[in-house]
């Protein structure tokens, strides 16, 4: 995998905190993410489903490891490329898929769509389609925990490309200044839409750049479960204990075009096929078997259960009706009385 020039921390290292139970929960999560994506792609390819879909293939491990350290009442903010984050945070799969299909049983009654998932019950507070838009909001979520004296943590996910936009920098500076419990999770998949990392910045390392705001910042191999698990434990632990924000640059690789159907002509085919050969879900599965001695049958059982729950979610979404016409004008304000007439 080609990554920015900084060395990942703890890459491939053993991990004492990663119990078998935790390792299998993470396996279930990455498998759910992968199966859901595979099923959606299949549906899109055949015309069975229709939506704008931003692949998360290759980025599954990041939220799966992070959410091992999060509670349900911790907050999360993500982007259009956030299905993996939603699944890991515990958004119910049926509601998630239904929302992506624009159905009334979706998390937002079909009014938000795949780029705007929210499910406060599982702590998934905002999904934004505007690059960088989530970070300032995450600072406010974290500020609320500080002001109310709770020990909740906020995790905000964003792409490497978002480090080019003003909102990101205002948010990071403010979070550091106020020492709020937020973890900035930059999922560096090496591309901002069709532009490679090295073609939009001269910074060799994002962690280095964001450390300048006066917060802890580190680079981690986002495709390694042990490394991500350990880095997330430290970052979330630090935020929870009150020592302020942490910036994690999670190195990964977008295993496909920007969105479903988008061109990959600008991507180096050798690099892409190498990254695909070393893709993180398969890599983790092999690690579980080879390094952790987990039985093949255990993993196969999890996979089979996941596949049927994904299939059930897709079938339920297909069977669900679209929102009723009256929904057009509800949820604009707290009351329809306030609508201009």
């Amino acid at each position: 995998m080609t990554v920015s020039t900084t060395q990942p921390v703890g890459s491939g290292g053993s991990n004492e905190g990663l119990t078998d139970d935790a390792a299998l929960r993470i396996f279930r999560t990455v498998t759910t993410i992968r199966s859901t994506e595979d099923r959606i792609i299949r549906g899109l390819s055949s015309g069975e489903l229709r939506m704008t879909y931003y692949t998360v293939r290759g980025q599954e491990v990041i939220p799966a490891a992070i959410c091992e350290h999060l509670r349900r009442d911790d907050y999360m903010v993500t982007t259009y490329r956030g299905m993996h984050d939603c699944i890991a945070k515990g958004v119910p799969l049926d509601e998630l898929v239904a929302e992506m299909c624009g159905k009334v049983t979706g998390t937002s009654k079909g009014k938000g769509g795949p780029m705007h998932l929210s499910d406060p019950q599982s702590g998934l507070m905002v999904t934004t389609g505007v690059v960088g838009g989530g970070l300032p909001i995450a600072v406010g979520l974290a500020l609320s925990s500080k002001l109310r004296g709770t020990d909740q943590v906020t995790v905000v996910n964003f792409g490497d490309g978002a480090t080019s936009i003003g909102a990101t920098h205002e948010a990071c500076n403010l979070a550091a200044l106020w020492e709020v419990p937020v973890v900035f999770v930059c999922q560096n998949n090496q591309y901002g839409e069709h532009t490679k990392f090295a073609d939009y910045t001269r910074s060799p390392s994002l962690a280095e750049r964001f450390r300048g705001y006066g917060m802890e910042a580190r680079t981690v191999d986002g495709n390694s479960v042990p490394a991500m698990h350990e880095a997330a434990a430290e970052a979330i632990g630090a935020a929870r204990s009150g020592s302020g924000p942490v910036f994690l640059e999670c190195l990964t690789y977008r295993l496909g075009g920007h969105s479903f159907g988008a061109t990959t002509e600008y991507m180096d085919p050798d690099e892409l096929s190498q990254a695909e050969a070393n893709e993180p879900v398969g890599r983790y599965r092999r690690w579980l078997v080879d390094q952790r001695g987990i039985g093949e049958d255990v993993l196969a059982d999890i996979e089979a259960a996941v596949v049927s729950s994904v299939e059930a979610a897709v079938e339920a979404a297909k069977a669900s009706p679209p929102p009723a016409p009256e929904e057009l004008l509800t949820d604009v304000f707290s009351s329809v009385e306030a609508l201009p007439r």
Binding site: G102, G112, H116, P322, P323, L328, L329
Partner: peptide, 16 residues
Amino acid sequence: AAYSPVPYAAELESLH
């Protein structure tokens, strides 16, 4: 356009 953010579901968007 209706006085609402643009809805996602095709059925609502066509009314918008």
